[in-house]
Every structure is written in structure tokens, then in C-alpha cells.
Amino acid sequence: MNEITITINGQPHQVAPQTSVLDLLTTLGHAEQGMALAINQAIISRSEWSEHLLQQDDDISLFQAIAGG
């Protein structure tokens, strides 16, 4: 099957169709705690990561909680 193209923090990335958010983060080694993820400027809750499937041209932002102040 053809791969789909997404961007992660602005960088293009190829993934297989039917890849979930959790699959992606596991592959990237970012599934650890403390990360948040948004697709097309909307945060995807951690409880939805395993079911939410990536779509062609998804714009993904990945970032960490900042505690400092």
C-alpha cells in the first residue's frame, strides 16, 4: 500500500496507512510520559492515541510539558 505523507514539527514524514498516533510515537521513541501531540492545531488526548489514525497531509506538533517558572 502507498505510504501517506505527514509533517512532524514542520518536517515531512512518510507513514503507512492505518498508522495510529500511538504507533507513530512508539516508532519515534516519543511515547514516553510528558509529551503532548496536536494534529492540525488540535490537541489529541492521550486516551485517543491508540485509535486516532493519521491522515494524508496531517500537520503534527509534538511537544513536552514545561514546568519552569
Partner: peptide
């Protein structure tokens, strides 16, 4: 908590990362 559900203290702060 909806945004950052983890309560593990492994995040960045000013004394370990600078600001």
C-alpha cells in the same frame, strides 16, 4: 491533566535547563 496527563516529574524546569 487533559493536556499533560503524566504526573511524573521528568519535565524541564529553569534550574535544570536554564531560561
Amino acid at each position: 491533566h487533559c493536556l499533560f496527563p503524566s504526573t511524573q516529574e521528568q519535565t524541564l524546569n529553569c534550574s535544570n535547563s536554564g531560561v
